[in-house]
């Protein structure tokens, strides 16, 4: 990147960048805390009873809140592994968009750096860093702020997961209370906040109706079909609206 060379001389120090990366990520870390606790508690308690080790492995290696909640919700209803993988894939396809947006700011870095900065990319770090790069541009040390944001989110998420596991181990006797609704409630909150456009409303309506109608299909095939059809219908409907708007 051109700007990287231009700003090299006047670049802030690594230390400054690391501290600022943590500073702009802190609100997201606070926001993620309750979800880490809820995740750890739900995964280790009913109806799934994952071991603390398995639960920590999810937070350490998958490191994707929404995908982790989906995984425990689907594992609890005996979903085949490939369906969980497919849902993870569809749910996190948005990360390719994040990478496409940020790639111009990191292309001057070494392969190892680019691997770490992409492997640790989450919604939160994307939001923090995309805004920061737009405000401040890129210079010799700006990737240290990016790295600090990733490490902050990762350490934070895993600490709160651990606390959640401790809570979940105390809830072993609480089967059948309906606590698993917490995961579904997070999904509801995420969906409702996105229902502002006609396209999103179409996607939700088609996905919900089809998923209900096709629920009896084996291997949770209804979930996959409903998702793909809903995305297609929403895109076609949006194009239709655009054309009508232009006419």
């Amino acid at each position: 990147m051109q700007a990287a060379a231009d700003l090299g001389a006047a670049a802030p120090s690594r230390r400054t960048e690391i501290l600022d990366g943590l500073k702009i990520t802190l609100p997201f870390m606070v926001g993620a805390a309750p979800f880490g606790v809820i995740f750890g508690a739900l995964a280790t308690s009913q109806p799934l009873h994952l071991s603390p080790f398995e639960t920590m492995a999810l937070s350490l290696f998958v490191f994707s809140g929404s995908a982790q909640f989906v995984a425990i919700a689907l594992m609890a209803v005996a979903t085949p592994a490939w369906v969980i993988w497919l849902v993870t894939f569809i749910l996190n396809l948005r990360h390719t968009l994040y990478a496409a947006t940020l790639v111009g700011y990191v292309r001057h870095l070494s392969l190892g750096w680019r691997f770490i900065l992409s492997a640790g990319l989450t919604d939160e770090t994307f939001a923090a860093m995309e805004d920061r790069y737009r405000r401040l541009g890129v210079h010799r040390n700006s990737h240290w702020a990016y790295l600090a944001s990733i490490i902050g989110m990762h350490v934070n998420w895993n600490c709160w997961t651990m606390i959640g596991i401790a809570v979940g181990m105390q809830m072993k006797g609480l089967d059948g209370l309906g606590l698993e609704f917490a995961a579904i409630a997070t999904f509801i909150g995420m969906v409702v906040q996105k229902l502002r456009t006609a396209g999103a409303q179409t996607a939700a309506a088609v996905a919900g109706i089809l998923a209900a109608l096709l629920a009896a299909l084996p291997y949770k095939a209804g979930l996959t079909i409903a998702t793909l059809v809903a995305i297609a219908v929403a895109v076609i409907f949006e194009r239709h609206l655009e054309r009508r708007g232009q006419a």
């Binding site: 948005r94 390719t96 919900g208 998923a211 629920a215 209804g222 809903a230 995305i231 895109v235």
Partner: peptide
Amino acid sequence: KALAHCPVAVLTAIIVPFAL
């Protein structure tokens, strides 16, 4: 545009069968 609709579609397809 298709990518933007992925989370809404897949999450709603999980929510509705669970609710019913």
